[in-house]
Design a protein around this nucleic acid. Structure first.
Lengths: 345, 345
DNA sequence: CACGCGACGACAAGCGGTTGCCATGACTTG
DNA sequence: CAAGTCATGGCAACCGCTTGTCGTCGCGTG
């Protein structure tokens, strides 16, 4: 009999038990041990039970690498986020990780610092390891994503790409509730402070805002694009202050907070002079002052749903639903919005 | 000749090239191809160049799984964080990921929701895959960590564990600068709002505060422990307001912000009536109002340094430095601290 | 000119599982 | 009672790459 394990005799020190060790201890073939775990019905119940017990006693753990090699099942999923330090992702990561663990998968979070180049590199590194990919606000082009998607099952977050499963926040309804809220506070002229042009969500939000405003008979202005940062929001302050708008909806919370701070710094009071609404409800929206009224994206749900969609797609042969999943956004009213003052400032 | 690849004939569709394909195309043995990449000196320069070129043309990429199986080199590192949604980790994750990528490693971030059980499970799942582990504020016991550490090279963040390499913020000097700052503002009675008892950092911070206060001749009070959350900080407000303290240092920024909000809600003005100092300088410290004076932990540096230490330790045979690495913290003065009012409120 | 020695490639045995196929034996069925 | 069925376990090939070892060949040396 060939002495299996001779190869690594040098590292004999802390050998972890393998199916071969278990098999020997049980007096069965390694394949039987393997099957006892992976295909329980295939082996006699008693034998299986005995094997399991012995394995337990020996402290046997299947080596995921060895398992993955022939099967391709690494039990790894990648979540690519454009910026881990962006609070927008915290909830998403948490939700995704939760859903992944639930299905016995491990989530690989890759941070790409808002750079398409790094994104490509990270993907290249991770792709051979993972069974599927969730792209959170990817900076890559549509076509690049499509190429990706035929290498590994892919789900896109916050972006719609025909043919690729995607899950997005229901920006339209979210925005509508924000505008209705402002209309209810008697604002008549509202402004949108836009985020980066490349952002799919920005386009959706602006469109939804215009439409909602039209329907409700409000005048609507648009400023931007601005960078999706505190600084970006700050830059918008002057234009906003100079305009006739008494309320503004910002591309997202970070921009909204930047805007509020700059407005306040220049003597414009929020919400007394101008009401401000954000988007996403990030951690921090309730730290700022005044606390921020915002359209809450279902962050954790987004992440979890994306992972579940991915897993579902991996299970079945055919690429699943093409229709993007719309997850509801809800308006969270805090202190940054108020009834319009009768007298124009 | 045995027909390699027959095994997966069923999946013939999208075969990716292997060293066997490259070898055949070059008319050399697979082992030569392997060595052409992994041990460039071992094979004739011309041959190697030719192999590389052919490989390039065929689009060959080494399968990391297959490589990892015999060698154990997965090029994966785990970073365990107790709560991804805690802004404290953003910088750490970013720094760690940066340092990992730099060394051609991929970082696996595991979120454990502040639960020792989940932490153990996550570790169990990830351990066989990774070459090393960074434990960010682990909730596990010292002994559990030690057991872990002998399975895989480990570095601990923000905690000192004899025998295990660790990298920590220099809490002592950080706290000292905070207390000096307050003393400089003529505060005579200062309070510490404590975080969770299990926290190693909390102990360090409290001790450093007491010592600094003693040296500078300040009276020092202590409240807590409180949960390291906004709510936890809020709970402290009443006690703080009722005390003689005119300045408080909180366990961390989140607690500080919670405290400030609750103080303000009950009519205590910050910093006019009470100065507040936080710890960590998380994103959000400059969103709140007043913006928070805080001891900035070198977050990204912490993450990066931990990974580098880990990598260094993996390289050499002997477990490296035992002495914990102290990374400097710096006081960031913002709006939440001010000179003590002459008249007692 | 025989011998020794490096350099270079090939061979093959691993890493630790998975899985198609076969052998065996018990049990069912006509 | 013979033939067929099914449950069960074992054999061996295979995933793709690494690496110890060996054979070969060319060259320098005594």
């Amino acid at each position: 009999m060939t002495c299996r394990g001779a190869y690594r005799r040098k590292v004999e020190e802390h050998r972890v038990p393998t199916i071969y060790d278990v098999a020997q201890a049980c007096g069965v073939a390694p394949s039987t041990v393997s099957r006892a775990f992976s295909r329980p019905g295939r082996v006699n119940a008693e034998t299986a039970a005995r094997i399991r017990q012995v394995a337990e006693e020996m402290g046997y753990r299947a080596n995921p690498l060895a398992r993955a090699l022939p099967t391709g099942k690494t039990s790894l999923l990648a979540l690519v986020v454009s910026d881990v330090t962006n609070p927008f992702y915290f909830g998403i990561i948490r939700g995704a990780e939760l859903a992944a663990n639930e299905a016995d998968y491990t989530l690989l979070v890759a941070d790409v610092y808002e750079s398409a180049v790094v994104e490509r590199k990270a993907l290249e590194r991770a792709l051979p390891l993972v069974e599927g990919v969730v792209l959170g606000t990817s900076r890559m082009s549509d076509s690049a994503i499509r190429v990706m998607a035929q290498q590994r099952p892919t789900v896109v977050l916050n972006r719609v790409l025909t043919g690729i499963p995607s899950v997005v926040t229901d920006n339209t309804r979210g925005m509508r509730s924000a505008v209705e809220h402002l209309a209810g506070l008697e604002h008549r002229t509202v402004a949108y402070v836009a985020g980066p042009e490349a952002s799919w969500a920005d386009g959706m939000r602006w469109r939804a805002m215009r439409e909602s405003a039209d329907e409700l008979g409000l005048r609507v202005l648009r400023f931007g694009p601005y960078a999706p940062t505190l600084g970006g929001g700050g830059e918008a302050a002057e234009a906003v202050a100079a305009s006739a708008a008494t309320a503004v909806v910002a591309y997202n919370d970070v921009v909204a907070i930047g805007l509020m701070r700059a407005l306040q710094a220049s003597g414009v009071r929020v919400p007394r002079d101008v009401s401000v609404v954000g988007f996403d409800n990030i951690f921090g929206a309730e730290l700022c002052s005044p606390t921020l009224t915002t359209v809450a994206a279902p962050l954790a749900a987004l992440g979890a749903y994306a992972v579940r969609t991915l897993l579902a797609g991996m299970g079945s042969r055919t690429p699943p639903q093409v229709r993007p999943a719309l997850l509801p956004a809800t308006l969270v009213v805090r202190e940054s919005t108020a009834r319009r003052l009768r007298r124009r400032r």
